[in-house]
Simulated assay, not measured.
Amino acid sequence: MADATPPFDDVLPEALRFRSPAPLVDIGANLTHESFARDLEATITRARAAGVTTLILTGTDREHAEQAVGLARRHPGLYATAGVHPHDASQWSPSLAAAMRELHREPEVVAVGECGLDFNRNFSTPAEQERALEAQLGLAAESGLPLFLHERDAGRRMREMLHAWRDDISRAVVHCFTADRETLYGYRDLDLHIGLTGWLCDERRGHHLRELVGEIPLERLMVETDCPYLLPRNLPAKLKGRRHEPALLPWIVREIAHWRGLTEAELARATTATALAFFGLDMNHNAHHALEEGPRHG
């Protein structure tokens, strides 16, 4: 039985081949996930065709952070984060801390994380999670890199820990924000950035976000797919395999823009300018060269 990569048309039907009116930054793409192994190059090509010119690849542990750095070295417009997800916080050790410190020195790494607190599933105990987060807050202060944060059902404790470090760390984004108004305003008071995903497109769970989206300062808002997870439920066509990918980010931007009362172009330009400044990237390189160059090898 043939094991060929699906053709472009077979992966994204015509109705899902969006094109953003302005370049976009996907601040959370898990392209080291095994589901992208067979068609990674095509996935990146589709993203660029959709106007998603910059991808921040999420490093949730040492292995995936190293893989993300490798991908970023080969492809213009791709960058990496390096951290330990709260689910894996029980693995934190002095040797892992040393490995993360080395990764944070790599030019492709633009943020510390994904790190944070997840009291929803507690794959690691809350105490283990707090220990790993505290250590990574220290690494962020030491490196000067921004923070890429995960929080689920732990808003109050997260705010307490961040408050203690706020003067020592540079910038921080709570990615895939899904919490309530109180938590949002607590993050606003800490001058944090907010990342929004296709959760907003979920008619079952996303209604409260539609009401809150206008209360996120535009200069603090960024957009992401969190692919392959969180495929928007209201896409205009079915997608085989239900795997989310960066090429679908324009749909999320369109939804957010609608609920904010902005045009898609206005939201695209604003979130891209914010993301490039947040991660310390050069807009001209990402908006133009990523579309023109082929993959780098080495």
Rank of each mutant, 00 (worst) to 15 (best):
S93H: 12
S93C: 05
A98C: 05
R101M: 08
L103D: 10
H104N: 13
H104Q: 09
E108K: 14
A111Y: 06
R121P: 15
T125G: 12
P126L: 13
E128K: 09
Q129F: 15
A132K: 03
E134T: 13
A135Y: 06
Q136M: 12
Q136A: 09
G138E: 00
A140Y: 05
A140N: 03
L147M: 14
L149E: 02
E151W: 00
R157C: 08
R157S: 02
R157P: 12
R159P: 02
R159T: 10
E160N: 01
L162N: 07
H163P: 00
A164F: 12
W165L: 01
D168C: 03
R171P: 02
A172V: 03
V173G: 03
C176K: 06
C176Q: 00
T178H: 01
D180S: 12
Y185T: 11
Y185E: 14
Y185C: 12
Y185Q: 11
G186V: 11
R188S: 08
D189N: 13
D191S: 13
D191I: 00
G195Y: 03
T197R: 06
T197S: 15
G198T: 04
W199T: 12
W199Y: 13
L200A: 04
L200G: 04
R204N: 08
R204V: 09
R204I: 01
R204F: 11
R205V: 14
E211I: 04
G214T: 01
I216Q: 02
R220H: 10
M222C: 04
M222H: 02
V223N: 05
V223M: 10
E224S: 09
P228D: 06
Y229V: 05
Y229W: 13
